[in-house]
């Protein structure tokens, strides 16, 4: 298995622990990644609100670079994945746009053919690598851990562009957690918005969203939350200490990136997974892991 790797801006900056734990997972599983170092930011659903054509061309440039390598794209960010798959669908459905985008790309010597596939690591693990094989690779099962899945938005909606999992009742994270030996804690809010997109605009409302869903996950008995999106992680972990001020009591639930959870089960030393960079400590949850 080999992919053109698009880690996204956040994993290369504030969430470097996600980048590092992904490297551990892919090394361990023999998944080869060739990083698209010259690719630009996907625009995160924001850039298109100023100039949607520009955003389409820049993403098509990224697709073209992967196509010229003969590889599909792997992301570790739900938002990148959602933006890129939506633009891919737009270009497929709108042939005049497809032509205009390619006319512009030609001027920088690139050509997008429409062949590349875009996958989140979650999807690649489930569909390309296979859960049975992953289960066999687990050396430290997550026995005794109750994990609350936080899907967020961009890995599920709009489903006709993403074509992954059932947006009404997703099961991908639950199957992954089970393959890693853990137990899933279900709660109201698994597929809701973490609040991050309005954090800079409607701060209090964003915190209220974050606090409500985290509190629900805790009340469902979860030891930790796992998310496939580093932007959700910023909201749920980094801003948790701010968000919990809108609740009567502290929330104090650790939030893991998907790659960190997988790496843990594949035998990575917790010290190597960057938990020290999280706002909410992971120690209590680690103690619950049965030896």
């Amino acid at each position: 298995m080999k992919y053109a790797y698009y880690p996204g801006c956040v994993a290369k900056s504030t969430a470097s622990e996600l980048y590092d734990s992904t490297a551990f997972v892919t090394n361990k599983l023999g998944i080869e990644l060739v990083e698209l170092t010259a690719a630009s930011c996907c625009g995160a659903g924001v850039q298109n609100e100023d100039n949607s054509f520009l955003c389409a061309v820049l993403n098509a440039r990224t697709f073209a670079m992967a196509e010229s390598m003969g590889l599909d794209i792997l992301t570790i960010c739900s938002t990148c994945q959602g933006v890129m798959r939506q633009i891919k669908k737009q270009l497929k459905d709108d042939s005049p746009l497809f032509s205009r985008v390619n006319e512009t790309l030609a001027k920088v010597g690139q050509k997008y053919e429409g062949k590349v596939k875009i996958k989140h690591l979650l999807w690649a693990l489930l569909e390309d690598y296979g859960l049975e094989k992953l289960e066999a690779a687990v050396v430290k099962p997550l026995k005794g851990l109750k994990v609350a899945p936080f899907y967020g938005c961009y890995i599920l909606r709009p489903s006709e562009a993403l074509e992954f999992d059932d947006h009404e009742k997703p099961t991908s994270l639950e199957s992954l957690i089970a393959a890693l030996g853990g137990e899933t804690a279900h709660y109201d809010g698994e597929t809701k918005c973490c609040g991050f997109p309005i954090l800079f605009v409607q701060r209090t409302k964003a915190f209220q969203m974050t606090a409500r869903y985290l509190t629900n996950s805790k009340q469902a008995g979860a030891d930790l939350v796992v998310t496939p999106c580093p932007l959700c992680h910023l909201s749920l972990d980094t801003y948790q200490i701010k968000a919990e001020k809108h609740m009567e009591s502290k929330i104090n639930i650790p939030v893991l990136h998907l790659s960190q959870l997988v790496a843990l089960a594949l035998g990575a030393k917790p010290e190597a997974l960057g938990f020290s960079k999280h706002m909410v400590p992971m120690e209590k949850a680690l103690h619950k892991l049965k030896p």
């Binding site: 938005c153 961009y154 909606r157 709009p158 489903s159 918005c193 997109p197 969203m209």
Partner: peptide, 11 residues
């Protein structure tokens, strides 16, 4: 600017 673009309305 209060929309989170969660795509729930689209779905």
């Amino acid at each position: 600017w209060s929309c989170t673009h969660c795509y729930m309305c689209w779905s």
